[in-house]
């Protein structure tokens, strides 16, 4: 974690598109009169999705106005939760888990690959395709090491697999999320140990 600030370059304005606006109004309607502020996180999240994966300052104001909240209250939330990106991210935004289980299973090598193939942390590549950052535990320790790319988990990585994954993404080849080795979900990597005989 480090100090999180708004990006120096901001768009002039932000508006929900028609579809998202309708969705946002549905979210707001879930809460009783006077409690609309409860919808702040879903709305911010949707704003981030609409705005290429990062949350611009005008969106903070737009959400505050929709919910009748003071700007500073929404600003507090946007800076508190690390899931809100306050600066632009790449088309493929890689969140690399660096917490203990992943670290023990080789996440440091993956980080070196990120640095080599993408560049410094939290910087978008010139072609706008990639950016990466190290995050805390994403809760997939049994498949460590792993990364999250946009909304999908890519697990059981090795340096080679990860390199080829990034190359495929760069080339625009479709990739399959989930465990990248011959393994079903979180089942034992060395094959089934129980329930493996026909009675």
């Amino acid at each position: 974690m480090s100090v999180r600030r708004l990006d120096p370059e901001q768009p002039a304005s932000f508006e929900f598109n028609a579809q998202n606006l309708k969705w946002a109004q549905q979210q707001i309607a879930k809460y009783p009169e006077g409690r609309q502020a409860a919808a702040v996180i879903p709305l911010l999240w949707r704003a981030q999705e609409q705005h290429d994966g990062w949350l611009p300052e005008p969106a903070i104001r737009a959400v505050a106005e929709m919910l009748g909240m003071p700007y500073i209250r929404v600003y507090e939330i946007a800076t508190f939760y690390t899931m809100f990106n306050l600066s632009p991210v790449g088309k493929y935004f890689i969140q690399l888990c660096g917490t203990t289980p992943c670290m023990l299973r080789g996440s440091e090598e993956l980080r070196a690959i990120c640095q080599k193939m993408i560049g410094p942390e939290k910087k978008v590549t010139a072609d706008g395709l990639f950016s990466w950052m190290e995050v805390e535990c994403l809760g997939a320790c049994v498949n460590a090491p792993m990364v999250q790319i946009n909304k999908d988990y890519f697990e059981d990585l090795t340096p080679d697999i990860f390199t080829s994954l990034l190359q495929k993404l760069k080339a625009g080849v479709a990739v399959k999320p989930g465990p990248q080795i011959n393994r079903q979900f979180s089942a034992p990597a060395s094959g089934l140990r129980t329930l493996n005989t026909d009675r």
Partner: peptide, 16 residues
Amino acid sequence: ELGAIGRGEDMEITTY
């Protein structure tokens, strides 16, 4: 007008 942005060690008091 005042709020606390960020969190933990990085928490800061500021206005919008």
